[in-house]
Design a binder for these strands. Structure first.
Lengths: 237, 237
DNA sequence: ATTTGAAATTTGATGCAACAAAATGATGGT
DNA sequence: ACCATCATTTTGTTGCATCAAATTTCAAAT
């Protein structure tokens, strides 16, 4: 065992400094819980959050509740409308445009890198997820559809091996998540995403980076078209 | 004044929800101060940070100090080596590779968008910044060079009009910042960046998106080449 | 030298009270 | 109905004490 690995706990295989297993603090759990609520659409756009209400809902004191809220504001998942007013932001068309442009760049990059690294087990898992999406569409279980869709995308992105990239993409999904869920089932009902996913799967099997990127970009764009029309309809109301 | 704008303080011109002027809380100032120290290289990689030491250095209590540290960990600017050990991370080659790939995608995008939006005043300001870079190189004032270089890049990026994109890019610079400064003046001495900046300027004047993107990408790549050789030299020491 | 282990110290997490500021509600006048 | 003004309540922020856990120190043994 060399000197560096004693002092710094590095992963021998890559030489990369590996973040130690996170101590599951209350602040961490509060953050994860709020984040999950946002992505799942339990917190609707416009809803006001206060430190004390979050603390009470999570059965913790104000300190970890404030931690969670502060972090989510930093990520853009919550916004300050006033000095003492934090709300779940409504998705504007301008915000959706910007986020979509960034998503195309980053998720395209992740998809491209993943194409050369996916293992056969990954393909199988993706096929299972696609089955869940299809079944969910048939049985009108739209929550399942959204969940499986998210898992499908992020399984691919994780295979890029770029953890920072995945983390950034997560913050982007976090920003459109509330509106996403606010507008479903109108959103999830569409089946246009299915063929894009199939193209992505085929591209992954062939290790064809360009094809996978194109499929993911198409998926993002078709989602954008549907979301933007719903958003602009709401905006001029 | 319509109903929504009373309750929600929206920016009429874009319809975008605009974050209210941030209350300059101690936590906010502590965060900004630490961030600045990191980008300026006052905190070297490997240096250990504790809540109490930061609190003492900033003349505040532990609460705002902890706020700042927690947020910076969330952004990847600080890392947890142990449950109670946060340090300024050393830049590994793998991390540099990943960050560079993301930078090429995002800063390229920002540069492209900015090309169609820059005003003549912006060009003038960029030329002044380039002068500062040139003078700094002549007079061996490398801190000035790094500062002006950062201002040059971010003035362009801000002109993309994509605030979320700029914020993400800032977190990327924050992650390479400490190593950047740790390794200068070796880094700043090189003049290869100058011609890239001139190409970018010309592209901006012509509103040639592709040219500006190419110039910025070249600048990032040439910086990568120099940084990576220094990093790998240090890594196998 | 290096390692081991235990004692001593330092550390992050958490809850809470106090305070100033902001948001909310009530009131009255037009 | 509408709006200004004031009183009330709610709210974020901050500092601090406490505690369990992690880190560091140091000495003894190999």
């Amino acid at each position: 065992m060399d000197d560096a690995s004693k002092r710094r706990r590095v992963d021998i295989s890559t030489g990369e400094i590996v973040p130690i297993e996170r101590h599951e603090s209350l602040g961490e759990r509060a953050y994860a819980s709020l984040k999950d609520s946002l992505i799942r659409g339990a917190l609707r756009p416009g809803m006001k959050l206060t430190v004390r209400s979050v603390a009470q809902a999570l059965h913790v004191s104000t300190t970890p509740a404030r931690d969670a809220i502060t972090r989510l504001i930093g990520e853009g998942a919550l916004v300050n409308l006033g000095p003492k007013t934090v709300v779940v932001p409504e998705l504007t068309l301008a915000a959706l445009d910007e986020i979509t442009a960034i998503r195309l760049a980053l998720e395209g990059l992740a998809a491209e890198k993943a194409a050369t690294k996916v293992a056969p087990e990954d393909i199988e898992e993706l096929e299972r997820l696609q089955e869940r999406i299809n079944r969910g569409l048939d049985e009108a279980r739209y929550t399942d559809v959204l969940d499986a869709n998210k898992d499908f995308h992020f399984l691919i992105y994780r295979r890029s091996g770029m953890s920072r990239l995945v983390a950034i993409v997560e913050t982007l999904w976090l920003q459109i998540g509330p509106a996403f869920n606010d507008l479903y089932p109108e959103f999830a009902q569409s089946r246009t995403g299915v063929s894009n996913h199939l193209f992505a799967l085929r591209g992954l099997q062939d290790h064809d980076s360009a094809a996978v990127r194109a499929a993911i970009e198409n998926d993002i764009r078709s989602g954008y078209r549907r979301l933007s029309s719903l958003v602009s309809a709401r905006q001029e109301r």
